[in-house]
Design a protein around this nucleic acid. Structure first.
Lengths: 174, 174
DNA sequence: TTCAACTCCGACCGATTTGATAGGAATTGA
DNA sequence: TCAATTCCTATCAAATCGGTCGGAGTTGAA
């Protein structure tokens, strides 16, 4: 049940383009790659389905680049995910019941279908604009929105001068 | 975002043991394998973490086998999943923030954490007993529990005619 | 008018993960 | 004593996935 790296990259790329473009400026993938330490060549691959899904608008040629095709608050995380890896399905039988050798009497399929639609709803309800909001970034765990704590505001102070997305030895981008 | 085959097998195995054992009878994995067309050798591997998580109780030796370690209504789908693939995490940074090269200022982590806990809740709220209920099987998804229908109680009597889980040519088990 | 910076496309490759098999020790009822 | 079982580790095979590459087409600027 992992989100693939492709999806994570796509999400991060969309966030970066949203921030950099400010509605109109074209953002080149080479810039995104620089900002985020993601391989440009790979981003190119990911941008294509995003464009085809009308989430990004690309301009070729010199000083070309991408812009959000719609305002960030009209782009859901669910759409982003779907465009790069297809419709969410935690199991093949969710989208294609015929793919399972058990016809109808499967005890688990109901579970899969329900959970699948619930997860899809979760992703659909969250927009790109939500991700950009400050109070969204820090909050941990309960799944419930939290107010921004004073401590969080303080720590947010050390901004991000270029090294922000730089690798720090171990680990990779989440 | 797929559930691994291991998880699906484990779920199906738990369902089968729950049905066959009726609380006390030991169910051998060779039987489960026969019923469900899953490879016995692989089931053995899956049963071990389930036992370690105190979801199954195993007895070695002749006429040995497995029984649910607790009543089906006290075993959640979430526990089953967790025992075989570890704690649910749609991203490494959910469980291990240090695994990500970006320290705090990651726009996506909040998303991952929230969605992760919501998904975990979904799985935790559903019990093995739920899966066995007839009305659970077919119905598609609002995600909301439904009362047991009289019809369901009646039909619950019938057993298990062996071919039920037999392969039908194409596809695999979902 | 040339050139450099882009998007856009398809093919391919290497590594990791995952599904599955295998051998065999220990246990226990018949 | 034997056969059926759990239990444990090691290993293999296949599928998926992350990432690279070469290159064609486009376009603004020098």
């Amino acid at each position: 049940m992992k989100l693939s790296k492709g999806v994570r990259y796509a999400l991060r790329m969309m966030v970066d383009i949203a921030k950099e473009s400010d509605g109109t400026n074209r953002v080149a993938l080479s810039q995104v790659a620089r900002h985020t330490c993601m391989p440009r060549r790979y981003l190119e691959q990911l941008a294509i389905p995003l464009r085809r899904a009308s989430l990004l608008a690309g301009t070729t040629g010199r000083r070309g680049g991408y812009v959000l095709a719609r305002p960030a608050q009209d782009i859901s995380v669910g759409e982003i995910i779907e465009s790069v890896v297809g419709r969410l399905s935690i199991t093949n039988c969710v989208l294609d019941p015929a793919s399972c050798t058990l016809a109808d009497g499967c005890e688990c399929r109901g579970l899969y279908q329900r959970v699948n639609t619930e997860i899809a709803k979760l992703f659909d309800r969250i927009t790109l604009a939500d991700l950009l909001r400050e109070d969204w970034v820090q909050s941990a765990g309960t799944g419930r929105r939290r107010r921004r704590t004073p401590a969080a505001s303080l720590r947010a102070g050390r901004g991000f001068p270029a090294e922000r997305h730089a690798p720090s030895g171990k680990g990779s981008l989440c």
